[in-house]
Design a protein around this nucleic acid. Structure first.
Length: 407
RNA sequence: GGAGAGGUUCCCGAGUGGCUAAAGGGAGCAGACUGUAAAUCUGCCGUCUUCGACUUCGGUGGUUCGAAUCCACCCCUCUCCA
């Protein structure tokens, strides 16, 4: 068995590990059961989760056994790590619903057949915990003094930290302990913002079970300037096609900075390291080939080959000149809507191309909008009914295309 | 529980009676330049039926011709003390 540790290092996944030498040796000699937790705080995973999922996939491919933990219980508490304010409290029903979506999304990258991976939900053991028992058994193992020195609480020490959130670390540590006892999990992985929580869990196992346990965190997906990636104007870059369309998803990666391509390819695709090195060695327009490949591969991984091809074709045709009507984001409007929104600015606002009619008006005035490749300048322009029936292609700026059809 | 400080447009942050839809910065959007990149420069950046109107400065009332700015009460946050 080749050590996946080298692979992960080579591709730039590893940010921090505990007991590095010991862990490296272990991963090289036997199949290790490890876990990663995902708190269902939204109804879809986003690209930030994806880096960690990739790490999980690499591990699985190397013969180790992943446990995907859905934080149905921990989400009831809310992780304060890296947050400047308290998370919104979600209801049990919302959490449950989100958890279901997570399961589907994780399954697309991780093979759960034949018990090759397990999925668990910490709600199963956290929700019915007895407070006093828990405090005596687990709480007694934690030093508040030490917890307070953790980096993840720093920002909160200035702004305020509630007791419920302060308990999060104990919950997560307890998860690790449970999984260690039940499934023999000896390694927990996660994003680097989870370092303190993960380490606390490993310590707990060592203390209570007198067994080795390891912590490993993955780099966060950041730009070369250290800014978090995966933000779009609509918020996060979601894995759910309904929240971020495959076309938008594709375009995001097609447009990343030169300086970030290599890192993204390493972390987010399975392309061979040598190939990535080679493709990203150019400083001129040839770097675009790398971006194109990355966008395609990643879209394929997340949305499937068919969607990836469609996104790619749409992009190539839109930017290449020939307009391929399919697979461009589009909106169908009905007669009633049309009667109330005949001007171009009304239609743009209706299709959410702009947040308001005022914004649409400004854009048109500034020359940022064209219809069927023809620049328009009059915001009061009325879109004719018969041309709308055939469908018009609105272009906002250089890269945003939207098709509108009257039904 | 006591004492102090504060809550401003997406974020940070000025503004202490009319000149304020509210400085400045960031983010974002657009134009130019390019490689569907970055950097840079320029414009925009509350809503609408846009040479005008309407809604905004924690909430509710009040003073005033006129309030983000003054008063009262309330809610919330932070700091120190208990």
């Amino acid at each position: 068995m080749t050590s996946v540790f080298d692979t992960l290092t080579q591709r730039g996944f590893i940010q921090q590990t505990s007991h590095e030498d010991e862990l490296k040796e272990l991963l090289g000699k036997e199949s290790v059961t490890f876990y990663i937790g995902f708190d269902p705080t939204a109804d879809s995973l986003h690209i930030g989760h994806y880096v960690v999922l990739m790490a999980m996939a690499h591990m699985q491919r190397a013969g180790h056994k992943p446990i995907a933990l859905i934080g149905g219980g921990t989400t009831m508490v809310g992780d304060p790590s890296g947050r400047t304010d308290m998370r919104q409290m979600l209801t049990k029903e919302e959490i449950q619903k989100n958890a279901e979506r997570f399961k589907d999304q994780i399954s697309s990258l991780i093979d759960f057949s034949d018990d090759k991976a397990i999925m668990v939900n910490n709600a199963d053991w956290l929700l019915d915990l007895n407070y006093i028992d828990f405090l005596r058994d687990i709480g007694s193992q934690f030093s508040v003094n030490r917890m307070l020195t953790a980096e993840c609480f720093k920002s909160r020490m200035e702004r305020g930290l509630t007791f419920i959130e302060f308990n999060y670390m104990l919950m997560q540590s307890y998860d690790f302990l449970v999984l260690n006892r039940e499934y023999g999990a000896v390694l927990q992985m996660g994003g680097d913002d989870q370092w303190a929580n993960i380490l606390a869990g490993a310590d707990l196992i060592r203390r209570k079970e007198h067994r080795s346990a390891f912590a490993l965190t993955c780099s966060l997906l950041t730009t070369s300037e250290g800014i978090k990636m995966g933000k779009t104007q609509k918020g996060a870059l979601w894995l759910d096609a309904n929240k971020t369309s495959p076309y938008e998803f594709y375009q995001y990666w097609r447009n990343v900075n030169d300086a970030d391509v290599k890192r993204c390819m390493m972390l987010l695709t399975f392309l061979p390291v040598e190939q990535i090195e080679e493709m990203c060695s150019h400083n001129d327009h040839r770097i675009n080939d790398a971006k194109r490949l990355m966008a395609f591969e990643l879209t394929k991984q997340v949305h499937g080959e068919e969607e990836a091809l469609k996104a790619q074709q749409a992009a190539e045709s839109l930017f290449g000149g020939a307009k391929d009507a399919d697979s461009i984001p589009s909106t169908e409007i009905n007669m009633e809507q049309y009667q109330q929104n005949q001007r171009i600015i009304d239609i743009m606002a209706l299709c959410a191309l702009t947040k308001s009619k005022g914004e649409a008006r400004r854009l048109v005035t500034q020359g940022g909008v064209s219809i069927d490749e023809e620049k328009i300048t009059d915001p009061e322009m009325v879109v004719q009914e018969d041309s709308l029936k055939k469908g018009i292609l609105i272009k906002k700026g250089k890269k945003t295309f939207h098709r509108v059809v009257l039904k």
